[in-house]
Amino acid sequence: MTWLRSASDTPTPFEGVLGLRPELLAAYRDFYGRLWDDRLVAPRLLELCRLRVALLHDCQAELAVRHETAGVAAEEVAALEQWQRNDCFTPVERAALAIADKMPWRQHEISDVEVAALRRHLPEAEAVALVLAIGLFDSHCRLRTVLGIEPRRQTVAAPASKRGRLY
């Protein structure tokens, strides 16, 4: 339960909190929603990184949200715990997850080799968007934790949308 006195949990717990500052909610939704709406990065790649970062943060509120069309199966979500030992992830996904693994607490350990591996697989614009997205996932989990956003298990069209919901 959030410690904020006047927050609600509708239409989503996150919007109920951020909605206390409507101009902030609108701008945040526009920024974060673009990642999902505008297909700047393949949805499956975003979703894998989002969930991996959420696992690292043990952020139940973020883990409770699932992207229904990202193409990540339940067994693959389970495999994210030990993704290095599972062969269900493609080379580009492994390159992305290597960076996602270090973004929350070991960002200075992200190596030139790891970034180069990502850039070999993706066009520059998509790689830039993905790295930015991973940073957003990290900050999103931190916000959820500090603001006390309640988990609400749901499968959604996208975790965020410019003109839709922010989960």
């Binding site: 500052r21 101009e23 902030l24 701008a27 945040y28 526009d30 920024f31 673009r34 990642l35 505008d38 700047l40 520059e124 614009a125 830039v128 968007a129 930015l132």
Partner: peptide, 24 residues
């Protein structure tokens, strides 16, 4: 200049960041 690879995303970021600094 790196984020200019995604100009619309960068513009949205600056709008958000601007609100952080100018309001609250």
């Amino acid at each position: 200049t790196v984020l200019q690879h995604q100009p619309a995303l960068l513009a949205a970021f600056w709008r958000l960041y601007g609100i952080f600094w100018s309001q609250g």
